[in-house]
Nucleic acid binder design. Structure first.
Lengths: 190, 190
DNA sequence: CTTGCCGTGTACCAATCGGTAAAGAGTTCT
DNA sequence: AGAACTCTTTACCGATTGGTACACGGCAAG
């Protein structure tokens, strides 16, 4: 019998890919099996809670990645401008210049939101808060920083939607550039 | 036998609701039947092409509504500012202050895009073009109008995602207000 | 060597999936 | 009245769905 001694974490990337592409309802166990290279047996061994537990694990994994690779560096950046640049680089890479959908944003739009409302909202709240923290530390007024951070996170989500719909990666990058410029001018004015 | 003498158009609102909420894959024929009040027989009488034809019809219906209620008025507005205000009012109402997802935007994010790539892209291109036309007519330079129009459409989509994820209608309205202000200042500078 | 656990493959389950077929009811013509 | 057309109901189809049961193989500890 072929054994690969897989562990739960190995399944997460493939799992995320399928969920992102086909949505929660569209991600059948056959698709999941193909994408992860795991049979039903292994899948239910790692995720006894079934599809819902797989989805929750993916959501937590994505959130953890953003926390470690984007949010925390953002809060701890020495130079606000460098922090912003680093965030934009990571965002452009993660979303493949807008050709890769935001799993969390997409799930927030439909019925899939209901079972995961709190993790989804938490992800966005955390992102906005991290960006606001950095702006305030750069001298921007609290309330201005709040709306600006909101605009930037919202702007990134919109750019994903529009760039994917129009199949135009350059649109995504250009939007990121404009959002960066807005953050820079706010910092310069402070 | 109970007869309601329905016609194809009567099914579209319910159809759109189900597709918007559950996505293409998640919208089962039972859900569709419940939402439209139509049995399988009637459904396949009006849409011989099955689910795919239903989806195409919904897409066309939404696009037609936007064309008539948003895009065309935008292009034909006497006063650019009044045109912008009217658009924002319609957008806020249509998206229920961000609590209702954008069916077209959501479908563009996943695998559902493939069969409908052209209508989806066309919808966004049309929206951007209409807004750009109005700005140019208001004296804004062609290229500045293009990026601004893109930012506004993208910003609206982002606001839908974020506002729904955070379950906060006021965030949607505030974002619309800020986008309006940006359009106003561009017009004032022209 | 044996015992026991972990991971895996396979067969199987009821339920639901999207879609079809055909007969019947209601309406509108001639 | 009778024909023709539109719409609806119902029963049904094979395929696939998410999920379960269980036996088998590899590995590690005793």
């Amino acid at each position: 019998m072929a054994r690969m001694i897989a562990e739960r974490a190995d399944a997460l990337p493939g799992l995320a890919e399928v969920f992102r592409e086909y949505g929660y309802a569209g991600a059948s166990l056959s698709l999941i099996g193909t994408a992860t290279g795991l049979g039903r047996g292994s899948l239910y061994h790692f995720f006894p809670g079934g599809k819902q537990e797989m989805a929750a694990a993916v959501l937590a994994d994505v959130a953890a990645w953003f926390d470690a690779s984007v949010f925390t560096p953002l809060e701890q950046a020495d130079d606000p401008r460098a922090g912003i640049d680093a965030m934009m680089v990571e965002v452009d890479r993660y979303f493949r210049s807008g050709q890769r959908a935001c799993l969390i944003g997409a799930w927030g739009l439909g019925a899939t939101r209901d079972p995961f409302a709190e993790p989804i909202a938490g992800y966005f709240r955390r992102w906005i808060a991290a960006l606001q923290t950095l702006l305030v530390r750069g001298g921007v007024a609290e309330d201005h920083a709040a709306t600006l951070a909101q605009d930037v996170v919202s702007g990134i989500q919109g750019a994903v939607v529009l760039s994917r719909a129009l199949n135009d990666p350059s649109l995504f990058r250009a939007t990121l550039g404009r959002l960066t410029a807005r953050l820079y001018t706010a910092l310069a004015a402070a």
